[in-house]
């Protein structure tokens, strides 16, 4: 059961990445490769807030949310906005990788290349729960991730903005013709995704350390989560993330420390091979 808790806690981080991908994907149709880097930035800001500035929890969270939201806004302005309306579809493939790389590089320049320990905001005593032990901070991470994912899912179906986002994911031009400001919606999605990543910086950092290349593995596992759960589905991404975390934890526990990534990779290839449709980018029949 301890392995299950560990898997769920790691999986929560992957779910968070998947959620961030989905928020932006739904509202703007862009796959933001750099989203994992936003989460990385969140862990560093949490470090700066909690350790360097010695702020209490709430201001640290606010610093993270505001800081990363601004970074996301800048990314949208610089790397996404100039490409809107271009016919060449794979521009964002290059520019979001570019944005991710710049964020990696800036983090390395600002905070150095060594991992920094982000303090846990909750007591470190592990709890015994359902026959396994789990740190309170990990439990909080799992619970809050669930809450965020389910909340976003409900919000997207029962609020005007959420529905507008689903509608513009389906047909941007038709959405614009209904009076929806699709550009602002896209920008808003980046800011929202950034703010969520920023708020979770403290909890994620407590589990992973803050390190400049954190984004790489998170991007990958977040993408695996999407591949499992189906793109554009918040609940799918949530489940996909937890599933990936569990596979990772069990592979590490029962196969060996070098293997979890390889096993997840195998699962990823298998999913792409066996169930490519309905996973990432649903194929539309009307294409001529």
């Amino acid at each position: 059961m301890t392995t299950v808790w560990a898997g769920l806690a790691t999986g929560a981080i992957y779910s968070l990445v998947a959620i961030g991908y989905n928020v932006v994907l739904l509202a703007s149709g862009t796959f933001n490769f750099a989203h994992a880097q936003l989460l990385m930035a969140g862990t560093f800001l949490a470090y700066t807030g909690a350790v360097t500035l010695g702020l209490p929890v709430l201001p640290t969270l606010l610093l993270g949310a505001a800081g990363v939201a601004v970074v996301a806004l800048l990314e949208e302005r610089i790397a996404i906005r100039p490409l809107l309306g271009r016919s060449d579809a794979h521009g964002a493939l290059i520019t979001t990788v570019g944005a991710a790389t710049i964020l990696d590089g800036l983090a390395a320049v600002i905070w150095g290349r060594e991992p920094l320990t982000v303090p846990s905001v909750l007591p470190d005593e592990p709890l015994t729960l359902l026959g396994g032990t789990v740190r309170p901070v990990d439990l909080a991470l799992i619970a809050l991730t669930l809450l965020t994912g389910v909340g976003l899912h409900l919000w997207s179906r029962h609020s005007l903005l959420g529905l507008a986002s689903l509608a513009s994911a389906e047909d941007r031009e038709a959405a614009a013709a209904r009076g929806i400001n699709v550009r602002l919606l896209g920008t808003g999605a980046f800011v929202l995704a950034g703010a969520i990543a920023g708020v979770f910086g403290l909890l994620v950092g407590a589990r992973t350390y803050a390190v400049f290349d954190l984004g790489h593995s998170l991007a990958l596992f977040g993408f695996v989560a999407i591949a499992i759960g189906g793109s554009g589905s918040q609940l799918g991404g949530l489940i996909g993330g937890f599933a990936t975390g569990l596979v990772y934890a069990f592979a590490a526990r029962y196969i060996g420390a070098e293997f979890p990534q390889i096993v997840v990779f195998g699962v990823f290839l298998l999913i792409l091979f066996l169930r490519p449709r309905g996973l990432f980018g649903a194929a539309l029949e009307r294409r001529v």
Binding site: L160, L163, A164, L166, A167, E170, D171, A174, A175, R178, G179, I180
Partner: peptide, 16 residues
């Protein structure tokens, strides 16, 4: 919007 219900479509029509 095919994936949305009739009522959701109408509400979206009233977005403005």
């Amino acid at each position: 919007f095919h994936a949305r219900t009739v009522e959701e479509n109408l509400l979206l029509g009233g977005y403005a």
